[in-house]
Design a protein around this nucleic acid. Structure first.
Lengths: 204, 204
DNA sequence: TTTCTTCTGTAACATACATCACCCATCAGC
DNA sequence: GCTGATGGGTGATGTATGTTACAGAAGAAA
C-alpha cells in the first residue's frame, strides 16, 4: 500500500491530494456505494479491490468490473460532479484501504492539475472498454466461456488458483441462476479444467 | 443546424472552437469511424444522427447508442487523446453535418475552457448510463421489450411513427437473427401495436 | 453425536431463441 | 407484362438456459 501511495504521489497526484483526502479501511463485503445514493466523495483504492455491479429493478445483478489499487470509481466521479445519484453498486471484494476525496476537490483539481485530469481520462477509457467487453460477453458468449473468464479474473485478482466462492455468488455476478452455474462447473470439472469442493474452486 | 450551432456557441463553445473546426457533410450509411481505426479528429454532430455499434470478431453487431445533434463521440475523444485505436464503429443514421475538431485542440481546450470540460464530462455520464442500459437490456430483457424500445428510439430520432427499416437491420442492431425479429414483429402486429409492410414499420 | 443450515448435484420440464429450409410477396428493371 | 432480387412469413427442429423440485454432502451448532 505504501508503494501504491508513493506511485500515486509521484506520478499523478501531489501533496494537496494526500493532505485533503482521508484514508479509510473497509472489510470485504462492505457496500461502499449503493444504487440511488448521492455521492459526496470519490474513492481511490490503495489496497484490496472493489467490485462494481449493476442491479435492475427486479434485483438481478451483473458484474461490471473491478476497481484495483491505484484506480478510482469513475461512475461516482461523474455522478458526483453532476450531483446526480449512483446507477451502480460498489462492494468491497478484498479488504481495502481507500482514499476518500471530496467531490468539490475532484472537480477543482481538473483545472489545477493536468496529471489529475489525465488520471481521470485514463480511467474513463479503461472503464468504457471494460463495459464494452461486458456487453459483448452478455450478448454473444455462452455461459462456459463467461464463467471461465470470471474465474480467471478472480484468480488473477486474488493471486491464487484457489477461489473461495459459492456457485450462487458466481451466478449473481453473471446474471444467471445457480443451477446453470453448477451444471457448467460440473462439465468443466469433467473436462479437468477445474476441481470443485464446497466453497472452493481450483483452477487446474 | 444554425440553431444548434448558435446554442453550442453560446452555451459551451467559443469562437476558437468554430474557427478551428471544419464542418463536413455525410450522407446516411457513411461509416465515420471504423473499428481499429486511429483517430485524428473528434466529431460533434450538428444535424442528423450517428449510431454507434460494437462488432465482435465474428462480425456480430450490437447497437450501443445514438449520437444526436449537439453531442460528440466520446469514445473517439478518449481513443484520440490516448492515441489509441477505436473499439467501436460509427455510422451515419440520418444525413449529418459534423464539426471535426483536431484531437490536439480537444485536449488543449480542457485546460483552457471549463465549459468544454463540462461538455465532455456531461457526455461521458450520458454514454455511461446508456451503456449500462444496454448491458441490462441484453442481460435481462426479452426480444419483444428490446424491439419495442428500439422502435420507439428510432421513432423519436426520426420524429415519425413510420420507420423505414428492414427486419435484418433491426436484427443486426439487437444482435439477433432476422427470423426472431420477424416473428416478434408479427406478434406485435397481431397485438395491434404496430403495422408492417415491406421496408416499413408503423407504430400505432 | 445429533441436528440444522448452507451448499451442491441433478432430473424433468418449460421457454426463448438459433438454425435450417423453403415459399411467397413486393418492387425494380427489362 | 415478365423476371430477378430483396424482404418477409413460417414450420420443424436443436440447444442453452430458466424453473421447479428434491436429495444428498459438508460444515456449524447444539
Amino acid at each position: 500500500m505504501a508503494e501504491i501511495k508513493e506511485n500515486l504521489f509521484h506520478s499523478l497526484l501531489n501533496k494537496e491530494v494526500f493532505e485533503t483526502a482521508q484514508i479509510n479501511s473497509f472489510s470485504a463485503g462492505t457496500v461502499i456505494l449503493n444504487i440511488h445514493a448521492y455521492i459526496k466523495s470519490i474513492p481511490i483504492v490503495l489496497s484490496g479491490s472493489i467490485k462494481v455491479i449493476q442491479t435492475d429493478e427486479e434485483g438481478r445483478e451483473i458484474l461490471l468490473y473491478y476497481i484495483k489499487p491505484g484506480e478510482s470509481c469513475i461512475m461516482s466521479f461523474l455522478a458526483g460532479i453532476h450531483n446526480d445519484s449512483s446507477k451502480i453498486k460498489a462492494i468491497v471484494e478484498e479488504d481495502a484501504e481507500i482514499l476518500l476525496i471530496p467531490v468539490e476537490k475532484a472537480s477543482e483539481w481538473i483545472k489545477k492539475f493536468p496529471e489529475w485530469t489525465d488520471f481521470i481520462f485514463n480511467l474513463y477509457q479503461k472503464r468504457f472498454e471494460e463495459l464494452l467487453e461486458v456487453v459483448n460477453a452478455v450478448a454473444f458468449q455462452k455461459m462456459d466461456t463467461r464463467l471461465l473468464q470470471l474465474l480467471n479474473q478472480k484468480s488473477a485478482l486474488f493471486h491464487s488458483k484457489e477461489i473461495s466462492v459459492t456457485h450462487q455468488q458466481l451466478a449473481d455476478e453473471l446474471g444467471t441462476t445457480r443451477e446453470a452455474v453448477s451444471r457448467v462447473l460440473k462439465q468443466m470439472e469433467n473436462s479437468k479444467l477445474i476441481a470443485l469442493s464446497r466453497n472452493r474452486i481450483s483452477i487446474l
